[in-house]
Amino acid sequence: MSELFTDADEIRQRLDAVGYLVDEGTATALFLATSLGRPLLLEGEPGVGKTSAAKALATALDTPLIRLQCYEGLSAGEALYEWNYQRQLLAIRLTEARGSHLSDADLFTEEFLLDRPLLRAVRHRGPLPPVLLIDEIDRADDEFEALLFEFLGESAITVPELGTFAALRPPVVVLTSNRSRELHDALRRRCLYHWIDYPSPERAAVILRRSVPAANEPLIASAAEFIGRVRGLELDKAPGMAEAIDWLSALAALRVTRLARDDIVSTLSAVAKSPDDRTAITEALEELGYPRQARKP
């Protein structure tokens, strides 16, 4: 799939054009995944832009994004394929009404096959391969990972009744994980790997500037620095870029031009996602450079 992009710089430029600012490491990982036709496993803390990377890649390529959201109990029927039992039953009844009989071979054909995300990606016939996002794979059960091995290794899915469906062009596969549990070594071996870290305050400021154009420069710079320092606290959930954008949007909506302690306290609901985190941030405000103002006599 080397014709999708010429190099990592082109990926950076084309993702930048669709509003996703990517660093050199992530751009290189995406380029290698598309040029080698290998699945890419993106790991990192929640909110660093793993899911957004796959979405932006599909937009930049102008190709379909096929998303499989993982969760505990996810089954093969929901991820790979399943049979249209209602349609099979209707076919049986119609045949019986005509005095005929359907064999199993008649019922288990492509006519009755329902494509789920993985099979849909394999059977895609567009001019470009689709981007398949397998989101939060760490939320699925260990057993579900084993169902992915054939697909990740061969871009193929076997339907016992019909045989093996292999992709004409391997889809661009991006898996994401928040590391809520360890993934199996066999899955990791089938993927390229990249860790996405939180952006530096400078790069965060660029992202915020694009996302919240109503905010002025001093507010953007101070908000980016504050979020970066808050992540150093002992929190249940450190704020990601999504929280930073929501927070800056709230500040801009309140017509805040320069960050002050009262502004932070009144808008903490956009940053802190638990009572303990709110308390921890509030108690650390003086250490973070936002002390209480002394009362005037």
Rank of each mutant, 00 (worst) to 15 (best):
P170A: 07
P170L: 00
P171A: 08
P171V: 12
P171D: 06
P171T: 06
P171S: 04
P171H: 05
V172I: 06
V174I: 15
L175R: 00
L175V: 07
S177Y: 12
S177R: 08
S177K: 07
S177Q: 08
S177T: 15
R179C: 00
R179W: 04
R179L: 06
S180G: 12
S180E: 14
R181N: 01
L183F: 12
H184E: 04
H184M: 07
D185Y: 13
D185N: 07
A186M: 08
R188A: 14
R188N: 09
R189L: 06
R189E: 08
R190Q: 09
R190H: 11
C191Y: 05
C191R: 02
C191L: 01
C191T: 00
L192A: 07
L192E: 04
H194Y: 14
H194R: 15
W195L: 14
W195V: 09
W195C: 04
I196H: 02
I196L: 15
I196V: 14
D197L: 11
D197N: 14
Y198D: 06
Y198M: 00
P199W: 09
S200Q: 07
S200H: 09
S200L: 11
P201K: 10
E202T: 10
E202M: 04
E202H: 09
R203A: 02
A204F: 02
A204Q: 15
A205N: 14
I207L: 13
I207A: 10
L208D: 13
L208F: 11
L208K: 10
L208V: 11
R209I: 02
R209W: 04
R209S: 13
R210H: 12
R210L: 11
R210I: 03
S211F: 03
S211T: 09
S211I: 03
V212M: 05
P213S: 03
P213M: 04
P213Q: 00
A214L: 00
A215S: 03
A215N: 01
A215C: 00
A215P: 01
N216L: 10
N216Y: 00
E217M: 00
E217G: 03
E217I: 04
P218F: 05
L219Y: 06
L219C: 02
L219K: 05
L219E: 07
L219V: 02
L219G: 05
I220W: 06
A221K: 03
A221P: 01
A221D: 03
S222A: 15
S222Y: 01
A223I: 02
A224T: 08
A224F: 12
A224R: 14
E225D: 14
E225V: 11
E225F: 09
E225A: 15
I227N: 05
I227E: 05
I227F: 10
G228V: 02
R229A: 11
R229L: 08
R229I: 00
R229T: 05
V230D: 08
V230W: 07
R231I: 09
R231A: 05
L233C: 08
L233T: 03
L233S: 11
L235M: 02
L235T: 04
D236I: 11
D236E: 15
D236L: 12
D236P: 10
D236R: 13
K237F: 13
P239L: 03
P239N: 01
G240S: 04
M241F: 06
A242R: 12
A242K: 05
A242P: 01
E243P: 09
E243V: 07
A244G: 15
A244S: 13
A244F: 10
I245S: 13
